[in-house]
């Protein structure tokens, strides 16, 4: 027998609907905006009835922005590509550096290990602007300013601590004896790391990678200061829509929709691994 009454069920659905509405409305509104011109967006009172237009998307994809003051060049598509390259690159580097480090911090007791791990985490405490000023000067001196390499390096401040601390927790949750059982059966620690620890920590690695990707994708300040136009990601590139003749809300909205798509796709893809990891369950004996 189901104990919940009909009234309770109805109330529950209403509550869930309200929550969904609250969180989804801004995104819904942006999607609507992206199919409107500035005139229909800015009319008072606002209305959800309008004649849809693809002009915003066309402008972004062709790179030609028509305003009342004339035609502007926008390189939104190359910004999107930059975002993708910078985020994927920094997550890849972060995983390559962070996973072995996380394993070491999680498994091996060595002098000062906690201090080092905490120092790495403390990079996240520093206000980025504080780091940026000296960094800009150094980068300009050694020629790293305005390079993908330099940007990916700086992005490690964001992604590395995140990956390190999340993945470390997952490694610590794997009972050490499972690895010992594998090692005593005739395997080196490296093959144990590869064949036992890595697969068991995969859900954690997927989660950390996804989160790090989103953090890197949303970063604004590092790229704003350290990159020039041709290396800038969408977060910085969106500034181009603030033009002399006003803010191009339609294009901004379309830009947001386009820039959500890659992270959304990645999240949907990684979700499979996250769920798989949960159903694998009994890592703890």
């Amino acid at each position: 027998m189901d104990q919940t009454s009909t009234l309770e069920k109805v109330l529950r659905r209403v509550a869930i609907s309200l929550v969904i509405l609250f969180f989804m409305f801004p995104i819904f509104w942006i999607v609507l905006m992206s199919f409107q011109t500035n005139e229909t967006i800015l009319r008072v009172p606002p209305s959800i009835v309008f004649e849809p237009t693809l002009s915003n998307y066309v402008a972004l994809i062709t790179g030609r922005l028509e305003t009342q003051a004339g035609t502007l060049e926008v390189n939104f598509m190359s910004n999107l590509w930059n975002s993708l390259f910078l985020s994927a690159g920094s997550v890849a580097v972060g995983l390559i550096l962070g996973i072995p480090a996380a394993y070491a911090f999680g498994r091996i007791k060595f002098r000062g290990s906690e201090d080092i791990a905490f120092t790495l985490l403390s990079f996240r405490f520093a206000p980025p602007l504080l780091v940026l000023l000296p960094l800009t000067i150094y980068f300009q001196k050694i020629g790293l300013a305005d390079t993908y390499f330099g940007l990916i390096w700086v992005y490690q401040l964001i992604v590395l601590p995140l990956i390190l601390w999340i993945v470390r927790g997952y490694f610590e949750d794997i009972p050490a004896d499972i690895e010992y059982a594998y090692r005593i059966a005739g395997h080196s620690w490296f093959s144990t790391f590869r064949k036992v620890a890595l697969p068991l920590a995969m859900p954690g690695i997927a989660a950390a990678g996804l989160l790090a990707f989103i953090f890197a994708w949303n970063n604004f300040i590092f790229a704003l200061v350290l990159a020039s136009a041709d290396k800038q990601p969408v977060t910085v590139g969106a500034l181009a829509f603030v033009t002399a003749s006003g803010i191009q809300y339609g294009q901004v909205a379309a830009g947001i929709v386009l820039s959500i798509l890659p992270t959304l796709a990645l999240a949907l893809y990684a979700q499979r691994y996250l769920v798989e990891g949960l159903s694998l369950g009994a890592v703890k004996g």
């Binding site: 009972p175 004896d177 499972i178 010992y180 059982a181 594998y182 090692r183 005593i184 059966a185 005739g186 395997h187 080196s188 620690w189 036992v196 697969p199 068991l200 694998l280 369950g281 009994a282 890592v283 004996g285």
Partner: peptide, 20 residues
């Protein structure tokens, strides 16, 4: 020597079966 070179077998108190 590391465990791999000692040529011993072990049954663990916590079982430690490979979960996968």
């Amino acid at each position: 020597l590391p465990p791999v070179k000692r040529h011993v077998a072990m049954a663990f108190e916590g079982y430690s079966l490979y979960p996968t």
